[in-house]
């Protein structure tokens, strides 16, 4: 068996995860351009339904490995399974989502397979003349974009940033091959154990799902100021996020952070309040449809990033903004 492009698929509650649907879009485009089949590796228990979905979503060859569900698996075990599967399938391009598991096992797999690795890619394309795979990713905290190419003959591994491609649409008429894959993994590959896995309940709307995000930065000045932002978010049916500063200052929990080290969001409306517009933050929200900035400093970088801006103290701007929004909504 020799495969060209292999996607590491993630299964959540028996279904193909949204992040995997996104790399199915990106992978399908590559496969079409290269004239090669697109293969998908799925690991889990009783995931025949997800395997069928993977075909409908664009996979040509779907390989199913019986193993623990991703949420409970030790990364060492998943790494060993994927490495063993790659030995059998010998793909030359392996795509992961830039998720907890993808981020952790992609570079380790590259070390084992002597492949190249590029993390957090936002675009995958084929160089028309050479046919080489080009991987674009933000670097220098989002200040720049690098396009990487690998030495000929080197297998290439990439993780793809969530939300950088639209999820693949299901076409139930698509045909593909589904095959079980038997991999033998030495259980001693797992060093240590998972003692506890905690999923923290999100109160209200998940940042990634919100259509409207009101984000506060260091300019908010303290935890009290967020009351105004929360009022605006509630009124617009959205939720509140933060930049690094409010987390570092302890005003807000890390789970609310948007940016390079936090969440990546792309709502219809993003209102940045007291946010300077550091690239490390903007990389997490720059694909928002409409970006609004409210900041006292007319020279703040955020005004180079926004569509609409108000130069002024948010404590004075937000109350009238909220009032007028209320009256317009009536």
């Amino acid at each position: 068996m020799s495969e060209k492009i292999l996607i590491f698929g993630e299964v959540a509650e028996g279904k193909v995860a949204t992040v995997t649907k996104e790399i199915l879009t990106a992978g399908r485009e590559l496969a079409n351009q290269m004239g090669e089949p697109l293969s998908v590796l799925l690991i889990g228990e009783n995931i025949e339904g997800a395997a069928k979905d993977a075909v409908s979503l664009g996979g040509d060859n779907v390989y199913v490995v019986n193993g623990p569900p991703i949420a409970k698996a030790h990364p060492d075990l998943y790494l060993a399974i994927v490495a063993e599967a790659c030995k059998q399938l010998t793909p030359s391009i392996i795509l992961f989502s830039h998720t907890d598991m993808g981020r952790e096992i992609a570079p380790r797999l590259a070390a084992r397979l002597k492949a190249s690795v590029t993390m957090d890619c936002i675009k995958l394309s084929i160089e028309p003349n050479s046919g080489a795979l080009l991987l674009s990713k933000p670097v220098y905290g989002g200040n720049a974009i690098a396009v990487w190419t690998s030495k000929p003959g080197t297998a290439q591994i990439a993780t793809v940033r969530p939300r950088s491609a639209a999820p693949a649409e299901s076409d139930p008429s698509r045909q593909g091959k589904i095959a079980p894959l038997t991999v033998s993994v030495d259980p001693s590959c797992v060093k240590g154990e998972v003692l506890e896995t905690v999923v923290e309940e999100v109160q209200g709307i998940r940042l990634e799902d919100a259509k409207v995000v009101v984000a506060g930065g260091g300019g908010i000045g303290g935890v009290e100021g967020f009351t105004l932002l929360e009022g605006l978010a509630a009124l617009l049916g959205g939720t509140v996020g933060v930049t690094r500063v409010p987390c570092d200052e302890g005003w807000k929990p890390l789970s609310m952070e948007i940016g390079q080290t936090g969440r990546i969001v792309s709502p219809n409306l993003y209102i940045a309040v007291g946010v300077s517009g550091a690239p490390q933050h903007m990389t997490g929200c720059s694909s928002s449809k409409l970006l609004v900035a409210i900041n006292r400093d007319p020279d703040a970088n955020i005004f180079r990033e926004a569509d609409l801006g108000v130069v002024g103290d948010y404590k004075k701007v937000l109350p009238s903004l909220i009032e007028r929004c209320k009256s317009l909504k009536m």
């Binding site: 160089e127 974009i145 396009v147 030495k151 690239p279």
Partner: peptide, 11 residues
């Protein structure tokens, strides 16, 4: 090195 930058540009 297994890969090289084909391009580097400002965002």
């Amino acid at each position: 090195a297994r890969k090289e930058a084909a391009e580097l540009s400002r965002r």
